[in-house]
């Protein structure tokens, strides 16, 4: 992924270390127009350093793709110990999320010699795999008209 500053929404940092996305400028990859407006919170727990940035990805599940379709890619500053991003005007439905703490801010996941990540990462519901990667269904959160929260704890 390139250093895509265009994905960076306008943010303001509150005293509680919460980041609010004021305007949803970033939904460039909407799979389809939302059927109804909903608010989604992405909450990243156990942020241990304020170096670099958090790169979040919101996926919409069920629109003909079991893997999910990228709905938003968001880059926000890292804030210890928790970051909360609120997205407005999304359609109701099933969603999943992933996060990468890009500590060196080089736009790529740092890995060891066999490709395992060496920067913190997380997925919604803190889903964990059995024989392989966590299933999208374990990462999924249903979002209705009242909105929803997708939580992920960083793996260090």
């Amino acid at each position: 992924m390139a250093k895509d500053a265009q994905w960076l929404p306008r943010v303001c940092r509150t005293a509680a270390g919460t980041i609010m996305v004021a305007t949803l400028l970033l939904i460039a990859l909407l799979a389809q127009a939302p059927a109804a407006a909903a608010e989604i919170q992405l909450v990243v727990e156990d942020v241990r350093s304020e170096q670099g940035v958090l790169r979040l990805e919101l996926l919409r599940i069920g629109d003909g793709s079991e893997d999910g379709v990228t709905t938003a890619q968001i880059m926000v500053p890292a804030v210890v110990p928790r970051v909360r991003v609120t997205l407005h005007d999304l359609g109701t439905g099933r969603y999943a999320a992933r996060v990468h703490h890009d500590v060196d801010d080089d736009g790529a996941m740092a890995t060891n010699l066999v490709g395992m990540p060496t920067e913190p990462w997380g997925v919604s519901n803190d889903a964990r795999g059995r024989f392989g990667p966590p299933r999208m269904t374990d990462m999924a959160v249903d979002v209705g008209d009242e909105g929803g929260v997708l939580r992920m704890t960083l793996v260090h």
Binding site: M1, R55, E57, R98, H100, M109, T111, V114, G115, M116, P117, W121, V123, R128, G129, R130, F131, G132, P133, P134
Partner: peptide, 13 residues
């Protein structure tokens, strides 16, 4: 990023 994560989790299993 997705591929990285999946590789990690495969190795993790």
């Amino acid at each position: 990023r997705r591929q990285f994560l999946e590789l990690a989790l495969t190795a993790a299993a």
